[in-house]
Design a protein around this nucleic acid. Structure first.
Lengths: 340, 340
DNA sequence: CTGAAAGCGCTAACAC
DNA sequence: GTGTTAGCGCTTTCAG
């Protein structure tokens, strides 16, 4: 691959995508006739259609969706920016957003931050291709070019509502419920198992919230936070916290909790007898493991509904792009099952 | 703006989306100046920018992504049509496709068939908005309008390769391995638990393949196929098949298998002692339940890679849109763990 | 710093 | 049956 000195477009396979004009020229017809052939419209002879289609094929012609959208008024497109799609919670949320968008006739473009070549550019790029942006880690300042574009932060803070829409995940009440539940269950040394985020300095917001809530358990010292790797075996960590006297493990999310449960089982540790385990999210799997997982559950479908409704309102101009009216809250609820 | 006598657009909230021209008029500047303000470009005075932005805001102006894409040559957009995103396998596949597309700089539009208002129109509609289509249940004949558009069937048949690209999931070999494994384990009465699909007449293709493979177990009669509901408790079904003497349950997929495991546990039935359980897919959860699930696993990331590579080849014109060269196969592999 | 002109690729409406 | 005309909304020249 010889790189030309200046800006000569690559010659080889993809010189320049063929347009309707190229096809028209090659088939010796007008552009309109090409349109008719390609879109299977009436008012064209079979012979001509054949000829046009052949020309199109030879040129590897594909209609530009932009030209088409311009004249046809394409559907609203929602850009969804997800941190990490291999995280079940995010994956389910993405799916729910797709589903909630369908009744509106919207298209949904899904983009992932964590595994992107240029993570910080994902949202910016996407914002130029869609009508609204929803997601995590979207830096509103980066999108200032997108004047008037609805932006909704998922799991955002009230502060973020000063500059964009926010769907808040209300965890405080449920965390308090959890602390109370653990307290009456006799827990005295709860520990928070946080997910080790790349590049994160301290504990996650969620872990901090958990610690704060747990702090209200009488007779218990401040709950320690232990960062664990998302995909690891956790065996060492488990042995360590057990040796440290932990009698309740609050995991960052259900996925981690289920892994913990699995690890404890292979260690022969009784749950909830010897140690209790709690997850966060309320994913389907949490109800399918043994013992069934006690968890702080949030209704993902509800989040998606609220989000889409909020965006729809913004698009119509019925809801301001930021401020109080652009703030929604979906609560977590304590789901007591067998593991704690 | 004097509205012409005849086609007055609706006045209310959503009259007609404001264009750059409306903004220019309102701000008393040229379109180009609006572009400069909106895109945060240099060569414009702060005062003018302010004025333009205000006008834009007042008109609820958002740039059209089509007009923009037309002149800017937007990225390739891949349309992914998934049957049911609440099925973990499909959700993971969708996520994997997003991830595999990122290095190419492609955008991915995800659409779901099963919960769409008009299921049969999903793929057709989408095909007019994207550069290539990948997915399940895409009727190639419906998309004939999309001349030259790459279409790839996921989990397709060799026959479908006559008209489109296909990524085949090769199950035969793994199913044979499974049958052999069950045979030497002493299984004599395996049963297939199929997912009851709405509107499906008989057993799924997968169930049929399983039955065919199981048929080779010496001393066993043809394996019965029992259709079960995706979300149900399965208790009745479980009791029935157990009463019927089943000593191995092959589930349509891991999700069902995990539910089965859960049901069996609450029934106090020993797995694999009393009955063995096998899943299909190889999802993450299959390794996190007790006993760990024996399953026919397929590499989802590999499927996504192959699919994206195939589409890329088609887009470049390097790979034909159908035929042998447009056929790829990703195999299932028998993953023997504890449940069978 | 601002504006005018050209053109991106396509289709609807109206000729012929 | 086919071609011509006129945009769709935006950004990129190039002139002022």
């Amino acid at each position: 691959m010889s790189s030309p000195p200046s800006s000569t477009p690559p010659r080889g396979t993809s010189a320049r995508r063929a347009t309707i004009i190229d096809v028209a020229a090659r088939a010796g017809v007008s552009r309109q006739t090409v349109t008719r052939a390609v879109n299977d419209m009436p008012g064209i002879s079979a012979a001509t259609r054949e000829r046009v289609l052949r020309a199109a094929q030879e040129l590897n012609y594909r209609p530009s969706r932009f030209g088409r959208g311009l004249v046809e008024q394409g559907p609203t497109t929602l850009g969804v920016v997800i941190k990490d799609l291999s995280n079940s919670f995010f994956a389910e949320l993405g799916a729910a957003l797709v589903r909630s968008s369908a009744p509106h006739g919207w298209n949904v473009v899904l983009a992932e931050i964590d595994h992107a070549p240029e993570p910080e550019r994902v949202a910016v790029e996407l914002s130029r291709r869609v009508d609204a942006i929803v997601g995590y880690g979207v830096d509103i300042d980066d999108i200032r070019g997108a004047i008037g574009m609805p932006v909704v932060h998922l799991d955002g803070s009230a502060r973020q509502a000063e500059s964009a829409g926010v769907v808040q995940f209300g965890a405080a009440a449920a965390m308090d419920d959890l602390a109370r539940h653990l307290e009456v269950s006799g827990v005295r040394r709860p520990m928070v198992l946080d997910l080790a985020m790349a590049g994160a300095a301290g504990p996650s917001i969620r872990a901090q919230g958990l610690v704060a809530a747990l702090d209200r358990i009488r007779g218990a010292a401040a709950a320690p936070v232990v960062a664990v790797d998302a995909r690891d075996g956790h065996r060492d960590v488990l042995e360590a916290v057990l040796a440290d006297g932990a009698d309740a493990l609050i995991a960052f999310n259900d996925e981690l909790a289920v892994r913990l449960l699995h690890g404890l089982r292979s260690l022969g540790v009784d749950v909830p007898g010897r140690v209790r385990v709690v997850g966060v999210d309320g994913l389907a799997i949490s109800g399918l493991v043994t013992p069934e997982l006690t968890t702080l559950a949030i209704d993902i479908a509800e989040i998606a509904e609220q989000t889409v409704a909020l965006v729809a309102g913004m698009l119509e101009g019925a809801v301001p792009l930021h401020g109080e009216q652009a703030l929604r809250t979906v609560p977590y609820r304590l789901l007591v099952r067998d593991s704690a």
